[in-house]
Design a protein around this nucleic acid. Structure first.
Lengths: 213, 213
DNA sequence: GTCTATAGTATGATAGAC
DNA sequence: GTCTATCATACTATAGAC
């Protein structure tokens, strides 16, 4: 994962030995997540980043052109991950409820595995450059559209109760997001990711089920 | 509202003429919201704040001790507002569904009226001092507990379908929050606050309705 | 009560030794 | 490839004129 990141940004990275570069890039990105989680990206100084990553001031600048570029770098890493995920999650299920179930769970589990990235991305994406903001919005819209397409399809097939598919998809997304935004709360309560995903699916199913009789 | 804020912090505000002080405090707080919405509180310099509020560097420091204090000041303002709201929203309805409906809507409408504060508070509360963080968490927990108590009561009365009331309250809260977190999205789509509140209520009702037969 | 000018400090970035 | 030392800049906060 980080290796791809290195190869893609190879021109702007002064360090050429892949093994070293990948190792240090990983430490840098982890450090950014860790510091940003606590005090936010804007409040993080490059000196903070040096302390946390173990590199020196000069060493750090062998990997990145500047603080601004860090945002785009991390954003790109996550985008690749999400793109791969979106492609893979086009499963060959046919039942609308099963498909919705799979799509909801996939996103929640992915955000559990890559929680630092999701949290960081949500909190800091507003501060990206103009071009990266549009890309982030497009990515956000794509995940939501996957949901709303599925819902719309289910409504057309009379499998789901009629409703505003776009609005519905937004509500489901809001619930999915809460899992990585309120980590401390769920940790304190001992809620597991499975329990949470179950609850979101139950909620969506209840709303989309056609009333009998 | 801002007058109370002035009176409560009167010792630390150098300007003593109430009318002037209230007017300027309002401009300062609005400016903080405006700048933070765009670039985040941490990235806002005191010079930015001067430009946006129309005060000079020296003038500004007549109202606040420092940048740190601004956070606590704004947090306090919102807390007062929320406390008042929580006290008022204890209506005398009896039907569990009506009560839940009222509670959900009240929060969404309040967040519509005071959206800058809600957005700011969500994004920046992590960076408060230790004491203020606990107070923010307590406030967050209180609004969620109002929901979960109501749900639990409804389950006990056999009015609602059984479920984990705490988890359910969290999901409803997540949907409520999305209204002020994704303002641009809803604005673009033309979704109104009434439509949104309706959708959240529908979702909650569907999940909590007891299945007939 | 508000302004301008400035002191002192922390920051992002680089040059050059190893 | 990495470090230490250093630069120019931008910041918070205050002092003193008006």
């Amino acid at each position: 994962m980080t290796r791809e990141l290195f190869r893609e940004n190879a021109e702007s990275i002064r360090v050429k030995k892949e093994k070293t570069a990948v190792k240090n890039l990983e430490r840098i990105i982890d450090a950014v997540f860790s510091i940003s989680m606590e005090k936010g990206f804007q409040a993080m100084s490059m000196r903070d980043l040096c302390d946390e990553s173990g590199l020196s001031m000069g060493g750090l600048y062998g990997y990145i052109k500047g603080k601004e570029e860090l945002l785009a770098l991390i954003q790109g890493q996550g985008r690749r991950m999400l793109e791969r995920f979106l492609a893979e999650s086009l499963t060959d299920l046919t039942d609308p409820f099963e498909k919705l179930d799979a799509l909801i769970r996939a996103h929640v589990y992915l955000s559990e595995v890559a929680r630092p990235w999701f949290f960081f991305s949500f909190m800091e994406s507003r501060h990206l450059g103009k071009e990266d903001v549009s890309r982030a919005i497009a990515m956000e819209a794509a995940t939501e559209k996957a949901l709303s397409d599925l819902i719309e399809e289910g409504i057309d097939n009379n499998a789901f109760a009629p409703c505003d598919a776009e609005l519905m998809a937004g509500l489901i997304k809001a619930m999915q997001q809460d899992w990585y935004l309120k980590r401390w709360k769920f940790k304190k309560r001992g809620t597991t990711v499975e329990q949470y995903a179950d609850a979101v699916v139950d909620m969506a199913f209840a709303r989309l089920a056609r009333k009998e009789g």
